[in-house]
């Protein structure tokens, strides 16, 4: 398997190491009591946020251990550290009521003690394998995530296409540099029809410091739809002419009707489902422009220290935002006359 040149920038949930949390367990003297104990514990002390933990762990030659309760009362992430000399009072209480409810003799369970168990449900096979070293956990594999992580998400043909669009973006970056602009180029593509909607580059050194490559690109797409908010004239830029209806009457024409106005919606909406190829990781402003514009995927080459797609934030998967998109960083190299791959 070749290492992928396109590295997915995923939510931290998929990238983090296994975090541990202290739990009280007790050893079961007679393993025939396990089922009863599990049943009673489920009502007495539900696992709550720790549903991914299996209640019992059968140890080779060491009998069976059963989870009683977390060392700390359940709360949101980021809680303070527990005192190391904390007593096991809550666990003992649980144990007492457990014995009372099951009517088992006190000798059937050991005194509670602490073990470290995985705090979060595993989101990847790697996390699952690591988590399982500490305590048995359940794992629901997300096929798409696994594929993304395997480095085999894109076919060789797709990689070639992505690479060529990125090279076009590099050409725009070079053009920008030659004009004394920040060397950031952008190409916005409709992947469904495999055609370029807009090409442009950074203009922040000009009249408006907000003319970052992404802001420019988004406005060029608006122009392709008969809109636009800025006057952007540059001989290197490209804007696809507005679509005419073709013979079938369906190209870029959605059949949906805006109920409130009674008018048929014409053409694409913002940058919905478009692919964005940009030579540098966008800043937070530009990332949010991509969210508002509802892009489908973003491919970038160089990371940026305050970038919003992996370096400083992950705005494309930010909780609370109404639109998310996929992001890939190109880590491969290519020979290209005009570019400096660093």
């Amino acid at each position: 398997m070749m290492p992928s040149e396109l590295v997915p920038v995923l939510d931290d949930v998929y990238c983090r190491p296994v975090h541990l949390v202290d739990f009280y367990v007790s050893s079961i003297g007679d393993r025939r009591h396990t089922a009863t104990l599990v049943r009673v514990l489920t009502t007495l002390h539900p696992l709550g946020q720790y549903q991914h933990l299996k209640r019992v762990r059968a140890m080779k030659n060491k009998g069976v251990r059963i989870l009683l309760c977390p060392a700390e009362p359940q709360q949101k992430a980021g809680e303070a550290q527990r005192d190391s000399d904390n007593s096991c009072a809550p666990a003992c209480t649980t144990l007492t009521s457990l014995l009372k409810n099951t009517k088992l003799p006190a000798s059937s369970l050991s005194k509670p003690y602490l073990v470290k168990v995985p705090r979060h449900p595993p989101a990847t096979r790697k996390q699952y394998d690591e988590a399982s070293l500490y305590w048995p956990v359940t794992f629901h594999e997300d096929k798409e995530i696994s594929q993304l992580l395997s480095g085999e998400f894109f076919s060789a043909e797709e990689v070639q296409k992505i690479k060529s669009y990125l090279q076009e973006a590099e050409t725009m970056a070079t053009a920008a540099a030659q004009k004394g602009q920040e060397p950031v180029g952008i190409v916005i593509v409709d992947p469904e029809r495999d055609r370029t909607i807009a090409k442009g580059h950074d203009l922040r050194q000009g009249k408006n410091p907000l003319h970052h490559a992404v802001m420019v690109g988004v406005d060029l797409v608006a122009k392709s739809q008969g809109g636009g908010m800025w006057t952007l004239t540059d001989s290197d830029f490209y804007v696809r002419p507005e679509e005419q209806m073709d013979s079938k009457g369906d190209v870029h024409r959605s059949s949906s009707t805006d109920v409130s106005s009674g008018k048929e919606k014409v053409g694409p909406y913002l940058c919905t489902a478009y692919d964005v190829y940009v030579t540098q990781e966008p800043c937070p402003m530009c990332c949010m422009a991509l969210v508002h514009s509802r892009v489908g995927r973003v491919f970038y080459i160089k990371p940026h220290v305050d970038g919003g797609l992996g370096s400083r934030y992950k705005i494309h998967v930010q909780n609370g935002l109404n639109h998310h998109f996929s992001v890939f960083q190109w880590t491969g190299t290519w020979r290209h006359n005009n570019t400096d791959p660093t």
């Binding site: 009249k207 907000l210 809109g227 636009g228 908010m229 422009a289 514009s293």
Partner: peptide, 22 residues
């Protein structure tokens, strides 16, 4: 806001006004 008018989702009041300050 001029988002609908400009078909640009970034035409927020502040962005519009920043350019006017310039």
């Amino acid at each position: 806001n001029r988002v609908n008018e400009t078909k640009n989702a970034t035409s927020h009041a502040e962005i519009v006004a920043i350019e006017k300050v310039m």
